[in-house]
Design a protein around this nucleic acid. Structure first.
Length: 197
DNA sequence: CCGGTGATGCCCT
DNA sequence: GGGCATCACCGGT
């Protein structure tokens, strides 16, 4: 069992995507301590037509080709940020989109940041969790071993199981089974009703 | 509960 | 200029 961020560079993207479930994210941005555990992820890589790194090694996506354990944050739909964890060896354009977390600490701060009060919809989407944790593109290329945004290896709890299925919100490579989530978690994004076993 | 849609700006062609 | 790894809101059911 691997419990180091450094191990993310030695495994294939599907394995990394699955392994990140249960890991903790701790934000101390703006002096607010906010944390949660990852319950939903999606993998992307350079041979995958849905990936930003597919045929595009540009200033924006360069971080995906860099060392594992750094953040790739992108801006989309004119108003939303999404957080990825870079994985794989240097030179390979791979990253894991964090699609949902289960809130742990700083729930009041999250509610303020989100301007919403309902616990189960606070962080159940990639842009929602960035808003809750005050993550924006200033954090791209950030080393997730350091404050103010920490990624802490952890494992799932006893009895928890993982579902593997197709990714959400993409028009390319729809059949790739690169989405993973914690079965029965009430904190995964709302389109999590696939019947994959 | 569900599907449809507008918001809004950056990146790449 | 087209498309986007999204979200919240609206109206019908």
């Amino acid at each position: 069992m691997s419990l180091l961020i450094d191990d993310l560079q030695n495994i294939d993207v599907a394995t990394a995507t699955k392994m990140l479930l249960g890991w903790q994210i701790i934000s101390t941005i703006n002096g607010q301590r906010i944390s949660g555990r990852i319950v939903e992820t999606e993998g992307y890589h350079q041979d995958d037509s849905a990936s930003h790194s597919f045929k595009h090694r540009t200033p924006r996506t360069e971080v995906m080709f860099g060392p594992a354990g750094h953040a790739y944050v992108y801006f989309t739909y004119g108003m939303h940020y999404c957080l990825n964890v870079v994985t794989g060896p240097e030179g390979r354009g791979e990253a894991v989109l964090i699609r949902a977390i289960e809130p742990i600490e700083g729930i009041d701060s999250m509610k303020k940041n989100r301007k919403k009060a309902d616990l189960t919809t606070l962080t159940n989407g990639p842009a929602k969790l960035c808003q809750a944790l005050s993550i924006n593109t200033a954090l791209t290329k950030h080393d997730l071993r350091k404050k103010p945004l920490l990624l802490i290896p952890d494992v799932l709890q006893k009895g928890e199981s993982i579902v593997q299925t197709t990714r959400i919100g993409i028009s390319q490579a729809k059949d790739a089974l690169l989405r993973f989530y914690v079965k029965d978690s009430q904190f995964v994004s709302k389109y999590s009703d696939e019947k994959s076993k």
